[in-house]
């Protein structure tokens, strides 16, 4: 069980819900559960091969999952998962 914070620009796909509780025990399972619950989110989270899109980063607490066990990173009841879009410009 973990809590996912939905980034503001994607909340229109979650009926404006900002946080979602999931039962998955890994990041991959939690994100897939989220996408199953809100199917319109899928195209914004995953590419055609089912991999999390390159311009989105996933954090568990303050840590990028790329520095942990990537999508296989384990989550527990108190874990907060953040979906982070790239914010940049020029």
């Amino acid at each position: 069980m973990s809590k996912i914070i939905i980034p503001t620009p994607l909340r229109k796909f979650t009926n404006q819900t900002a946080t979602i509780q999931t039962n998955g025990t890994t990041v991959q399972a939690a994100i897939e559960e989220l996408a199953t619950k809100f199917p319109d989110l899928k195209q914004h989270l995953f590419d055609q091969s089912g991999t999390i899109r390159s311009f989105i980063r996933i954090f568990v607490g303050d840590d990028d999952i790329q520095s942990l066990e990537k999508e296989a990173t384990k989550v527990s009841q108190h874990t907060i998962i953040s979906i982070v879009p790239a914010i940049a410009g020029g």
């Binding site: 914070i5 503001t8 900002a18 954090f59 303050d62 953040s82 982070v84 914010i87 940049a88 410009g89």
Partner: peptide, 23 residues
């Protein structure tokens, strides 16, 4: 010519908004 905002700053901003009932 370029700017970028660190992921951790984005996370803090989203959490601050949630905590304070803001968008």
């Amino acid at each position: 010519r370029r700017f970028e905002i660190a992921a951790i700053d984005y996370i803090k901003a989203e959490q601050y908004a949630l905590t304070n009932g803001l968008n």
